[in-house]
Amino acid sequence: MFWQISLELLQGFGVTCLIFAATLLFALPLGLVLSFGSMSRFKPLKYVVKVFVWIIRGTPLMLQILVVYYGPALIFHWGFLDRIVAVVVAFVINYACYFSEIYRGGIESISKGQYEAGQVLGMTRSQIFFRVVLLQVVKRIVPPMSNEVITLVKDTSLARIIVVEEILKVAYDFTVTGLIWPLFYTAVYYLVFVGLLTLLFGWLEKKLQYFKV
């Protein structure tokens, strides 16, 4: 019984991990694109991106999931995305916006002197960004990024709103049959996973130590 339920919860946790991995995979690069947009010298683009980030950060993720899943069918009669795809799309958009602001903070924290030094050495703008600035930015944003990434692990439980069988949904369904403990037992899965992530980020910070500026 215990193993049977552990196994079923583990299956649910597989879905949780899938949402987590897919979100990171797409949101990390998309966030960078958005951060360039919000720092663009081309004003219209800058404001469009700023308004977009405001909308996404200003509304609950749960609502965004509902909009992505039901919106196309309700408004345009287009039909439905696969549930899990809809969840990932909503998460990617949401997290990309948060990531973009972290990237922006990191990029703007690099002193102007470094750009000037690069120009003096005859480097192009993109050379300066990718060879000089980027790695320093990576080092500086690791702590805030680790915060967001850990939050993401737990935000996956919102997928329940459109009946995605992630771990908390599986556990909740057990309560309907009179089993309460699986609900609290799910904490073990989250804790182990977040524990591993914490170790990973600790290791990453150490690896980037030599960049001290």
């Binding site: 797409f26 690069p29 694109v33 039909g79 995305l81 696969d82 050379q127 960004f129």
Partner: peptide, 21 residues
């Protein structure tokens, strides 16, 4: 590097155009 960025943008756009079942 500009090419790489352009590629990245294109890939993301393509992803955005998910087909609806």
């Amino acid at each position: 590097m500009k090419k790489f960025l352009a590629l990245l943008c294109t890939a993301l756009l393509a992803l955005g155009a998910v087909t609806f079942a």
